[in-house]
Nucleic acid binder design. Structure first.
Length: 425
RNA sequence: GGAGAGGUGGCUGAGUGGUCGAAAGCGAACGACUCGAAAUCGUUUAAUAGGUAACUAUUCGUGGGUUCGAAUCCCACCCUCUCCGCCA
């Protein structure tokens, strides 16, 4: 959430910053509401002050005289009543304004960082570096072909269980998934991250707090009988974990790593990536998350990104690092680095981790602060996949495929998986 | 799901209509004593919003209501705990 005060005091600069996203935003209607609200605030405060004084006076008068029903006293009470009417009228107005302002501001995305490349869409993203040698040969199999021939997963049988875009992992496929989760959790938790295993169901407030609501309710699955949603990413429960807290600055940064299943409706993406493990309604992910001192989030962003990178390096998977342009940034993010893994079958890089610095955007929505120089300040939140498990498996299958149809398991993963190759059953 | 109890400052806990933003204790900070420390004694110590400040307002789980005035009364909701039932 953007700072209401900023919109009230400098709407033009707010619009200018937001327009970096490649769309026009009109914040003047909100600006007007905030001015109106401010005036009402002051008026209410004045009236309350008067009415409080009067109440005290009445209390004193009653204490002095035994007559609770004197004409004088009744007049004072009547006066007090008038205050009450006026105040409650104004409060009603204010409540409406507050709701409206809150609703409007919640729908505004975060400011893009000035360091992010300016651009309109995906095509303007900037490649920062590549790592490893991308496997480029003809007649390479896709991971779903490999998965089928090695019997690692089955999507068509899974439609009987739920519907398309779900998967059932089988045998070595299931084992590989499990190995990857443990592998990633171990590396990160040995690297200073505290492991969390949060609930998969989250309430509306939590989704609001990290920015998925109110704008993207179409993207999540909702439970019909409760105010609970299937969490689209561990970012949601982790943000909510420290909601409404003032964190001692000496504890910062707080670094969490969490494994969680993630559920996304993928509305609007039918027809894309319909096969394999790339785009599913349910997938597993190991998520990295930092609560950072606001003055240190730029360095934190580099660290979290390189922590995510380290997994790809250990697994020896070629990847590139991409600086997401202003027009392609997620709603809550001010700057995002994507890690894209090489998928030889499509001869392209695919997103496997998205590392974002949300600055104080989520912290303001969730009210997470720290005390610096005796003043409360919103902390900065950062998140990054470390990594998406399904896509990592796809990359291992495709990059590790051998001419005899087997798949070589990256050395670092062997202790977790238990063997060097996945062979035909 | 049934029955009961409860939610007050950093913590424990008192407070059932009027200077209550809230006793007391613990904790913490500062000072005295001490070579230093412990102990003891004294003083201070809630948060948030607005304002340069003086100050003003709000906050006793949340939201409404009654009243000139609510931590205190009324209504609804949320959460926690205990017992019973069910259950991986």
């Amino acid at each position: 959430m953007l700072d209401q005060k900023l919109i009230r005091e400098n709407p033009t600069s707010v619009e200018k910053s937001l327009s970096l996203r490649g769309k026009d935003f009109n914040v003047f209607p909100i600006h007007k509401l905030t001015i109106e609200k401010k005036a009402i605030d002051i008026e209410i405060s004045n009236l309350q002050s008067e009415s409080k004084k009067l109440s005290k006076l009445i209390g004193l008068e009653i204490g002095k005289s035994l007559n609770n029903n004197s004409a004088e006293l009744n007049n004072l009470k009547k006066e007090g009543n008038e205050y009450r009417m006026k105040i409650s009228e104004l409060e009603e107005k204010k409540r409406k304004l507050d709701n409206q302002i809150h609703k409007e501001i919640s729908s505004l995305p975060n400011f893009p960082s000035k360091d992010a490349p300016t651009g309109k869409d995906e095509s303007d993203n900037v490649q920062i570096k590549t790592w490893g040698d991308p496997l480029k040969k003809d007649h390479l199999k896709s991971h779903w072909e490999i998965g089928e021939s090695l019997n690692l997963f089955d999507s068509s049988k899974t439609t009987k269980i739920s519907k398309s875009r779900f998967i059932t992992l089988i045998g070595n496929g299931a084992k590989l998934e499990r190995a990857l989760i443990n592998f990633m959790l171990d590396i990160h938790s040995n690297n200073g991250y505290l492991e969390l295993m949060p609930p998969a169901l989250v309430n509306s407030e939590s989704l609001q707090g990290s920015g998925q609501l109110p704008k993207f309710s179409n993207e999540s699955f909702k439970c019909s009988n409760d105010d609970l949603w299937l969490s689209p990413t561990a970012e949601v429960p982790i943000t909510a974990f420290n909601k409404n807290e003032i964190i001692d600055p000496s504890l910062l940064p707080i670094k969490y790593v969490a494994y969680s299943p993630c559920f996304r409706r993928e509305a609007g993406s039918y027809g894309r990536d319909t096969r394999g493990l790339i785009r599913l309604h349910q997938f597993n992910k190991v998520e990295l998350y930092w609560f950072s001192n606001p003055s240190k989030s730029l360095e934190a962003h580099k660290s979290i990104t390189s922590d995510a990178e380290s997994i790809l390096k250990k697994l020896n998977l070629p990847f590139r690092l991409v600086d997401i342009c202003t027009g392609d940034l997620g709603f809550s993010s001010s700057r995002t680095f994507d890690l894209e893994v090489w998928l030889p079958s499509s001869k392209s890089y695919r997103e496997i981790s998205s590392c974002s610095n949300c600055l104080d955007f989520q912290a303001r929505r969730s009210s997470i602060r720290t005390k610096i120089d005796k003043k409360n300040q919103y902390i900065h939140t950062l998140n990054g996949s470390g990594l998406a498990i399904g896509r990592t498996m796809a990359a291992i299958l495709e990059n590790g495929q051998q001419s005899d149809g087997s798949v070589k398991i990256p050395d670092a993963l062997v202790p977790y998986f238990g063997s060097n190759f996945i062979k035909t059953p």
